[in-house]
């Protein structure tokens, strides 16, 4: 526990360093001195604009998306006792994505209010999680995490097919918006969005964190948890709701970062161990660092101009995932 806390503090420090590094990456060139000067209230108008209107919100959004996905991944993996569970593999984020696609296709618009998108994504995610539970479990038998995941993978491909069909109805600009969004792009770079998002993440992050002890017990085994007096069914639903809420908001503002919710917890677990109370923040922070780095690549390297951040994350994390799979 103590070790975990220390590592968490170190990780947070690392996040801060990457964050400061991120402040220096972008198409508007500023010296490091100028960035610091601007950060602490000085600087000219242009550098203030670049930093406070474009760079900082982007970086904050990246961290928030990482936090949401990372924590959500931990909850799902602990609840299902399976290292391969995540919002991506369980099809929860694909479900969120589908509902947003349907909304854009039916209303023929790509302007969305700050509240509507996360709510839609949440509904989609909840619906999808419910459907996967309905299809992947049976009353007669015990919960089989593997089956849930396989159902999730298959369901996300079904969502993808339905999404493709909806997209055929769209015109080119909406199509492009949706494609970029589905590939995972940080698009909600506006302070008002970020405030909504941050409150959401803080609220559900806190609620999840409160369930940390329960999560530890459930992770040991359903029966043991029951023996220790935990109302497994109720806690399961409560924690799943939190996880879906966290991932949905991230999907709504940051698009579909498929592997993030899987890689974050994995790396974090290697660092701090399995105690959910230290694992939750650590995983969020690690995922945040990943998104930050990927976004810095896209923003700073014109070679990758116009490529959504999510694609960079996928291409970078698939090899790691495959490595995990080969090792497992």
């Amino acid at each position: 526990m103590l070790r975990g806390t220390v590592i968490n503090i170190v990780l947070a420090g690392l996040l801060l360093i990457v964050f400061f590094f991120g402040c220096n990456v972008g198409q508007y060139r500023m010296s490091i001195g100028k960035v610091f000067e601007t950060l602490f209230g000085g600087g000219d108008e242009s550098s203030r604009l670049a930093l406070f209107e474009y760079r900082l919100p982007r970086l904050c959004l990246a961290i928030l998306v990482g936090l949401g996905m990372g924590m959500s991944g931990v909850v799902m993996q602990d609840l299902l006792h399976n290292d391969l569970a995540s919002p991506g593999t369980l099809g929860v984020s694909a479900g969120s994505g589908l509902l947003v696609t349907v909304y854009v296709a039916l209303l023929q618009t790509n302007n969305s209010s700050a509240i509507l998108l996360p709510v839609l994504a949440l509904l989609g995610g909840l619906g999808s999680a419910g459907l996967i539970f309905l299809l992947g479990t049976s009353r007669k038998k015990r919960l089989q995490p593997t089956r849930l995941i396989m159902t999730g993978v298959a369901m996300s491909s079904a969502y993808g097919a339905v999404g493709t069909f909806m997209m055929l109805l769209l015109d080119d600009s909406q199509l492009e918006f949706l494609q970029r969004w589905q590939a995972g792009e940080l698009w909600g770079v506006r302070w008002d969005y970020i405030v909504v998002f941050a409150i959401w993440i803080l609220l559900f992050g806190f609620m999840t964190y409160r369930g940390g002890r329960t999560l530890n017990v459930i992770n040991v085994g359903y029966d043991i948890a029951r023996g220790l007096g935990v109302n497994v069914g109720r806690q399961f639903i409560y924690l799943s709701l939190c996880a879906v809420a966290l991932s949905s908001a991230s999907v709504a503002f940051g698009g579909n970062f498929f592997f993030l919710g899987l890689i974050g917890p994995h790396i974090a677990r290697r660092l701090v161990g399995t105690d959910a109370r230290v694992l939750l923040p650590a995983s969020g922070i690690v995922a945040g660092i990943i998104v930050l780095l990927a976004d810095m690549l896209v923003q700073g390297w014109t070679f990758l101009a116009n490529i959504p951040t999510g694609i960079v994350i996928s291409v970078l994390s698939v090899p790691y995932f495959l490595y995990l799979l080969m090792k497992a």
Binding site: E176, Q179, R180, Q182, A183, F258, F259, N306, I307, P308, G310, I311, S314, V315, V318
Partner: peptide, 13 residues
């Protein structure tokens, strides 16, 4: 996912 990410990267670019 790997292939479709790269594909959509090219397609979008």
């Amino acid at each position: 996912t790997l292939f479709s990410s790269i594909t959509s990267g090219i397609v979008l670019k």
